[in-house]
Amino acid sequence: MPVPHARPITLTTPERRRLTALAYSHTAGYHQVIRARIVCDAARGHANAAIARRHDVTVDTVRRWRGRFADEGLAGLADRPRPGRPTRFTPVQTAEVKALACQLPAETGTPLSKWTCPDLAAEAVDRGIVAAISASTIRRILARDTIKPWQHHSWIFIRDPRFAVKAAHVLDLYARTFDGVPLDADEYVISSDEKTSIQARCRCHPTLPPGTARTMRVNHEYQRKGALAYLAAYDVHQAKVFSHRSAKTGILPFMTLAEQVMTQQPYASAKRVFWVVDNGSSHRGQAAADRLSQRFPNAVMVHTPIHASWLNQVEIYFSIIQRKVLTPNDFTSLDQVEDRLTAFEQRYNATARPFRWKFTPADLEDLMTRIERHEQKEQNLQQPAGCNTQPAAHALAA
Rank of each mutant, 00 (worst) to 15 (best):
T13C: 10
R16P: 08
T20I: 09
A21C: 06
L22P: 10
A36Y: 04
V39H: 02
A42D: 07
R44M: 10
A50Q: 09
H55R: 07
V59Y: 05
V59L: 08
D60A: 12
F69T: 05
R80C: 06
R80V: 12
P81K: 11
R82V: 14
R85A: 10
P91Y: 02
V92P: 06
T94R: 07
E96Y: 11
V97M: 14
K98R: 15
T110F: 13
T116Q: 01
A121H: 01
V125F: 06
I133G: 09
K148Q: 15
W150Q: 04
W155E: 05
D160T: 10
F163Y: 06
K166E: 00
A168P: 03
R176Q: 04
T177Y: 06
V189F: 00
S191Y: 02
K195S: 04
T196K: 13
Q199H: 08
R201H: 13
C204E: 12
P206V: 03
G211A: 11
A229G: 07
A229F: 14
A232F: 03
S246W: 05
A247I: 11
T249S: 12
G250P: 05
P253R: 01
F254G: 15
M255R: 05
A258C: 09
Q260H: 13
Q264L: 11
K271V: 02
H303D: 01
H303Y: 01
I306L: 04
S309I: 10
V314L: 04
V314N: 00
E315C: 09
I316D: 06
Q322A: 11
P328A: 05
N329E: 07
F331P: 08
T332I: 10
Q346F: 15
N349Y: 01
T351A: 02
R353T: 10
E365S: 14
H374M: 07
G386C: 02
Q390Y: 06
Q390R: 13
